[in-house]
Computed example of a mutant assay.
Amino acid sequence: MSGTGEVGALSDAALAAHLAEVAGRILLQVRESGLFDAKALGKAGDQTANQFLCHALRAARGNDGLLSEEEKDNDDRLAKSRVWIVDPVDGTREYGEARVDWAVHVGMAVDGAPVIGAVALPGLDGGIVLRSDQPRVVPPAPDRLRMVVSRTRPAKETVEVAARLGAELVPMGSAGAKAMAVILGQADIYLHSGGQYEWDSMAPAAVALAHGLHASRIDGSSLVYNQADVYLPDLLICRKEHAGHILDLIAGMARQD
């Protein structure tokens, strides 16, 4: 694609996927430059990818709102129906350590709902982008369920639910990588209660919903984006047939506390 006219002609979903894929390539080039140690690399990658994504979105969709983890927030977005929400590097630590479990999130909320999403996983062999407009067939669950958890600080509630389900814990880095692991058949449940922000879950939730998965808060309520307070601390992504039981377990644990 040679110019903004061609990019502007893309559908919203195709634009999200294109930007996530290009940002992923940029991040790999920043890392491969060899100019940064692991700590500095995360900051350099975040800022470089953020500049690309924000400039590109303003050029292609200048009338829409924009919220990025790495960009100063502008309250003007609150009056917009269509708001792009991006995380230039989800899993900065994993990116800096040259692991595969990091992601780029590009998505759009419409009237607060996660409608459009693309999650790039550039660290995987060849890199892949999972997108809301091109759903894949989600592999069937095995006899023993698998739950992705933080590889550094798994939440107490998550570990307890996994124990009650008899689920295997699968440590993993970024939120996007965890959510996409369910789609890719590497896991069956992504339950998070340790604190997140809108950019951590918006694109993954849109992609998960488009693939026929359940995506909600851990009390079962809907995920709502483009809020004045962008703190959105919890998330459940899983197959629909497992959602009711998991939500009941969480509610029961809350009553016991």
Rank of each mutant, 00 (worst) to 15 (best):
A98S: 14
L223G: 06
A175K: 14
M147T: 11
A44V: 08
M202V: 08
A177E: 04
Y231V: 15
D248E: 08
E157M: 14
C238I: 13
G123A: 05
Q256K: 13
L10Y: 10
G126R: 03
D143A: 14
R255F: 12
A179L: 07
R144L: 10
V83N: 03
A103W: 01
V149E: 00
V119N: 07
Q51D: 14
G45M: 01
V119L: 05
A44I: 01
G91C: 03
H214C: 02
T48R: 02
A16G: 09
M147Y: 00
D257R: 15
H18I: 08
E70I: 00
A98K: 15
W84G: 04
H214N: 03
I237E: 07
G176N: 10
K240S: 14
M253L: 15
F52Q: 09
A163T: 10
I250C: 11
W84F: 03
S81Q: 11
N74D: 15
G62E: 09
T92R: 05
Q227I: 01
S201E: 05
T4S: 13
A254N: 08
G107Y: 01
R255P: 05
Y225E: 04
L124N: 12
P88N: 07
A179V: 08
V83C: 04
D257E: 15
I183L: 04
L184G: 15
P139R: 13
G24V: 01
L223C: 04
A23V: 01
V100W: 06
A228I: 05
Q227G: 11
E241Y: 13
E97G: 03
L236I: 08
R153L: 14
Y190C: 12
V115S: 00
E168H: 11
D229F: 04
L53R: 11
D257H: 15
A60K: 12
A103T: 02
A59R: 11
S221I: 11
G45Q: 05
D12H: 12
G176C: 05
I250L: 06
S222C: 10
R239V: 11
D87C: 01
N50P: 02
R146G: 08
